[in-house]
Computed example of a mutant assay.
Amino acid sequence: MSIYKEITLNGIWKQNPGVVQLLGLCPTLAVTTSVVNGVSLGLATVLVMAAANGTISPVRKYVPNEIRVPVFILVIAALVTVIDLSINAFAHPLHKVLGIFIPLIVVNCIVLARVESFAAKNAPIPSILDGFMMGIGLTLVLGLLGGMRELVGKGTLFSGLDLVFGPAAKQFVLTIIPDYHGFLLAVLPPGAFLGLGMLIAARNWMDIRNKAKSADEHTTTSALQPALHP
């Protein structure tokens, strides 16, 4: 259980692909103009990463080392094609918005990095969990960044929900700032860089604060031990 706990913690916090490893910056910066766009691409990446890790891990011993990367990319490309065609079939408006970034999951360094560094060296169950949690960590970053940019840029949250669930979902779009004329910088690429920088700074600050708190607690415990045990 400690292995699974460590894999989960690494994917969401310690080795988060979006704010720690800084992998897949192209879709992170390009697609996160809204919460819906960011989360949709993130969930597609989750499915691809979990499926790719689960596919590669059982056959890792049978793939020659010389051709492992082309084989990995071939498997990832097949999975991405399935996801791409599924989104096109069941959520065509969303497919048009995400555009080329769905097929580009094939060459996303996050997917190939986890297949190469984890799935090719570990058993199927931990590999599937690793791909899933790394994808969830990226999805959280995409959702937060998309929410920040959408709120500042448009004054709304969940705009474009109808692209996924149909016209009836428009009633769930939240207008946070009424009569807001928008802030163009937030929805442009420079806004993505600024927003991502803020998320990285916030994550680093929380990490430093937690480490300092743990160190203070350890120092206090060490100082009390002689008094408790004379």
Rank of each mutant, 00 (worst) to 15 (best):
V39R: 06
G160L: 13
N122L: 01
I128A: 09
T139G: 10
L104G: 12
V141I: 10
D179V: 02
I76S: 05
K121I: 07
L199G: 00
F193L: 11
N53K: 06
S86G: 07
A169T: 09
L151S: 11
I73A: 08
I12R: 00
V97F: 09
V82T: 05
P27V: 12
E217T: 02
T156M: 14
P126S: 01
E66I: 15
V75T: 02
E66N: 15
F90Q: 03
A186Y: 05
K61P: 03
P27I: 11
L140H: 07
E217H: 08
K14I: 05
K121A: 14
T28D: 03
A44M: 15
A212L: 13
P103T: 05
L184P: 02
L145A: 06
V31F: 03
F72C: 04
H181R: 12
I67A: 12
F72N: 04
F72I: 07
P27S: 11
I7D: 06
T175N: 14
L196E: 00
I128N: 09
A52C: 09
T220Q: 13
L25P: 08
C26W: 12
K96Y: 09
T45N: 14
D207C: 07
M206L: 10
Q171G: 08
A113W: 05
A78N: 05
G143E: 08
L104M: 15
A91P: 05
M198Q: 02
F132P: 03
G182W: 15
E217K: 12
F172A: 15
G182P: 12
G18A: 06
V59Y: 15
I87H: 02
V82F: 10
V82Q: 04
I200C: 05
R149F: 12
G11R: 00
P230I: 00
M134T: 13
A123M: 10
H229A: 02
N122H: 15
V19F: 01
R68K: 15
V75G: 02
I83P: 04
H229N: 07
L112W: 03
L98A: 08
L199M: 01
A91D: 05
L9K: 13
P178T: 08
I200M: 11
G135V: 08
V80T: 09
V48D: 14
L104Q: 11
V39M: 12
L29R: 06
I7C: 07
A50D: 14
I73E: 01
V71W: 02
T139K: 10
I125D: 08
T32D: 05
S34E: 08
L104H: 11
I200P: 02
L23P: 00
K211E: 11
T45M: 13
G160K: 14
N204D: 11
T219Y: 09
D207A: 13
K170F: 05
V107P: 01
V59N: 13
